[in-house]
Design a protein around this nucleic acid. Sequence first.
DNA 1: CGGCCAACCGGAAACGTTTCCGTAGGCGCT
DNA 2: AGCGCCTACGGAAACGTTTCCGGTTGGCCG
Lengths: 373, 373
Amino acid sequence: MAGIRDLARECGVSVATVSRALNGQPQVSVETRRQIQEAARRIGYRPSHSARALVRGRSDAVGLLWDSGYEASGRRHPFLMSVLVGVKRALGDLDRHLLLLNAADHNAEDNAFLNAALEHQLDGVILMGIDERRPAARALYDSGLPCVAFDLPITGRHTTYVTSDNAAGAVEAVHYLHRLGHRRAATITGPADSLPALQRLAGFQATVHALGMETRPEYVQTGDFFLGSGYAAGCRLAALTDRPTAVFVAGDEMAIGVMHAFADAGIDVPRDVSVIGFDDIEAASLVRPGLTTIAQDPIALGAAAVEALLALVDAESPADPDELAVQDARLPRTVPIRLVERGSCAPPRPAWEAAAREGGRRRSSPDIERLPG
Amino acid sequence: MAGIRDLARECGVSVATVSRALNGQPQVSVETRRQIQEAARRIGYRPSHSARALVRGRSDAVGLLWDSGYEASGRRHPFLMSVLVGVKRALGDLDRHLLLLNAADHNAEDNAFLNAALEHQLDGVILMGIDERRPAARALYDSGLPCVAFDLPITGRHTTYVTSDNAAGAVEAVHYLHRLGHRRAATITGPADSLPALQRLAGFQATVHALGMETRPEYVQTGDFFLGSGYAAGCRLAALTDRPTAVFVAGDEMAIGVMHAFADAGIDVPRDVSVIGFDDIEAASLVRPGLTTIAQDPIALGAAAVEALLALVDAESPADPDELAVQDARLPRTVPIRLVERGSCAPPRPAWEAAAREGGRRRSSPDIERLPG
DNA sequence: CGGCCAACCGGAAACGTTTCCGTAGGCGCT
DNA sequence: AGCGCCTACGGAAACGTTTCCGGTTGGCCG
């Protein structure tokens, strides 16, 4: 393994010069630099990450904390993998790497995460799909180490979070429904301790109100983001005498559940009732009819997270903690969403046609006609 | 930041003793060890990973290489995330960490991966969802650094791969179909350069032959693991005069595609034809009817990968390269699969009923009756 | 011509570990 | 009593960088 000394000897210069040349520092002549780079390539020199990290006191790596047991706990992050891709790309552009902290799912000592982060001298940590109330997690973001989370409103000395624009997504969804002609829309929301669920519900209610659409207590049902709860809520909706003509569901998996419930009740989607989801999970494009949904942009989410994290570390890097910059970096990031139309929404049926509904019944997966603008 | 010297001073011993005590080496008295551990906790001592890695020459970390642009290239790894969980857990049990190498999707210099791996002194690298023909990947597993891949039959000096028991899965699938009473089964396979596709096809053909089931050229169709290709293949199958009564599809997404094709052709699944998939992706349990499929075990796959990787590094760790152990560690790992029954398979219809099929048509998602053992 | 500055470079001290080698004492054995 | 072995420990040399503090040129200005 060729070290910096070998390289220095090879070029007839000192190790200091080699270091400066390779790190792009200015006090080295262009000719010397060229020679050094040339020689480095020739002898296959590779700088030791450990040595560099040791002396500089940081590793240029960020940690990723995510808990594999999380999904079982009744919450979800439907596309962690894609978000991860976004994180990885953004980091790659900055020549940084990502260290997965094994959350030692069992037997996790309270300082497990923090210890790992400090031992590796991480620049900061990104948290996703984790129970933010775990002591081990708390210890981490109470430590002053920069942290950014997905969909988790964590607080700490150097901490912020990123999330999709859930409120905007909800208002776009009900505007869309309203444009289609719907006036009676229900929603299925998520657990009350889920930030996205709350924001989506708030957006829904505000817009329904602003548009003067009908509102009743039975029109908001609660689920847990999983299929079964969507099915159950769908059954409750189906049994209503004043059934809504559209339903905005806070998560795609639940939305698929309500579609099943409606199918089992003999209610055709989208002819009899429209359903619109949230997230755009893979299955949304696989089911029939295709699920119209508010799509999150996982790549952008990942990029926003690293941007937020870097802002956090930059803000505290100078010796004097720039209080203003810290405040600024602490602001949550919110990334835009996008409506993707598939087959699960349509204009409501005219009353006379709905009345005649109990006649013949056709195939439940009709090709849906293109919707007008 | 407390260093090992502070700890030594605190305890009135030398740094050498502290190091030995903390690393569990035997030549330190139990009393001294206890005191040192106590003091370490008290002053919050955390060993520097960089320093340790620097002097020991290795980092106790393994790299993970996966290419986010891969899916666009016509191949898939349907549950990378879950496999990742498996890898992470297995690693966590060994107090190792996982470093995600940013594959610098663009502008990737030919040695990008290898450089990153060497600079970080990784124990080895796990590859998944990557185009194994990329020069940058080749350089990696030609380098002698231990590598293990998923579903990629890569070869190199210290290299192996893990994969699900695709052949066994295929034979189980057709046995299952055969038990149900099917005698005319088709298959939809994947690209010819995909290892799992090849193995699944081979298992299918061998079993069909062994069981004396009908075989015709049109009964094997080729797809690319994506929905559209499954739909197309399903249409071709539906148009056959001697249509098969069951189809074994080499991937769940394609399987969903053929279900759509059949639905559009007025063919009911599972009444008119059974379809069985492979992989058990999330959507398999979300569609209707639920997709009966051969499930891979992603957690076990991940665990098998780290086990294989560690065998590889152990085999070459002694000064003398134990040629036998290396040979042994190079053997591919194969992890068992499991049949999961959902609603897409049923006994074939008796001929007389099939003949009368063109009569009334009912809802396409009937609740399926439980199958006899 | 002396002094000053900029540009370029070298020596050496860190950084925090692990490990090799050495040593002091205790103990059993002949 | 002398010898050697074993256990527990200390001293110090690595490991491969970065960076501080200089030092040596050569050119320019006064």
